[in-house]
Design a binder for these strands. Structure first.
Lengths: 207, 207
DNA sequence: GTCTATACTCTGATAGAC
DNA sequence: GTCTATCAGAGTATAGAC
């Protein structure tokens, strides 16, 4: 019998399950307390493992954190990558806003993990920011620039336009507690935000 | 001789200076690492005091943190409080955006302290959010509502309009590292943001 | 592969000399 | 008021039994 169909990944089902449980628990804890505020005790408890057992799967606290960040980066940048230079400008931007808000709604822990990381100086992802992220943003900013020059959307500084999309969508994940405390009960923040942001960017970009 | 002119504040000059140095150092550390990630060792080092000496001025880590938060709340809410129901709607809102962005530029550590606190569940300020902040926002939302009903600015959900101002202005303090990494050198993020946000809210609120 | 036991460091806080 | 010394507990990580 061959219990390991993938030859280059010598992991049993249990190993895969445990690694996943650890990463999930670590996402909980890191996103709430930041790297230094998180403890292996807490991660192990949430994951339902003993601390030494946790350290059998990952060599260190750093390693778990790094695995989380790199594993999530692609999901995080995907919506911007999907912005299609050949599509209809307004439709493309609104679709980007919508997808980004969906990420905030469906992956709030991931949003907070990145927020914590940036807030704390981003020392562990600084290089990625200045290379991968910057290149991607520059590329898409040129697309926006072209659309503006062609008169298809209003002229605005493209980088700051992108920042505004990040700020407005991520706010609903990162400041969720505050949003709900201010709105009070009986509200659906994300549904309201979806309508509000559509209006906002339609008005902002209209010629 | 009377070295203490204020009878109800039995503090010498040195005590005041040290307390201030501690709070300033604590703002550095708490705003960068969050409550749990901050250590008294680090705060004491930044403040230039020994750890026991620091604990002579404040009874505990919690006490320093609480003092910081309550001391800063007034500064933080001041711009919104200044929004004048009798003023010109567009001018008042733009002035609010401007003042809020100035706070981000001049008090980025304070912005990050609050961001960390919300991000980490806001357990230490939850009550304030649901009472003081909510009341203030509700009151100002009613002012915005009236302006909209009078047809003086565009109709939008007022709470989310306020959220958008918070998100857009605080982003430049909280995500400063990312903003600078993406823009690259040779930029003045706050100057650019000031112009961009003025354009954004003018377009958004125009009738 | 998983557990118990434990080494060793860091952290918040206190005691007591000066 | 400030320092040295120190404590108890929590923190990361390792050794070794099973």
């Amino acid at each position: 019998m061959q219990p390991e169909p993938t030859a280059n990944r010598p992991q049993t089902r249990i190993q895969r399950r445990n690694r996943q449980a650890i990463l999930d628990a670590a996402l909980d804890v890191f996103s709430q307390h930041g790297f230094r505020g998180a403890t292996l005790d807490q991660i192990a408890e949430v994951a339902g493992l003993s601390k030494p057992n946790l350290l059998y799967y990952f060599p260190s606290k750093e390693a778990i954190h790094e695995q989380l960040l790199t594993g999530l980066l692609d999901i995080w940048l995907d919506p911007l990558r999907k912005l299609d230079p050949k599509g209809d400008p307004l439709r493309e931007i609104l679709a980007y806003v919508h997808r980004k808000l969906e990420l905030s709604r469906d992956y709030p822990r991931e949003s907070r993990l990145f927020a914590n990381e940036i807030l704390q100086g981003a020392s562990r992802i600084e290089r990625v920011l200045a290379t991968v992220l910057r290149d991607l943003v520059d590329r898409k900013a040129r697309v926006l620039m072209r659309w503006m020059e062609e008169g298809r959307i209003a002229a605005l500084p493209p980088h700051h336009l992108i920042f505004s999309i990040w700020a407005l969508t991520q706010h609903y994940a990162d400041f969720d507690v505050q949003v709900r405390a201010v709105l009070g009960p009986g509200h659906d923040p994300y549904a309201e935000a979806d309508a509000f942001l559509e209006t906002l960017f339609r008005r902002l970009l209209a010629i």
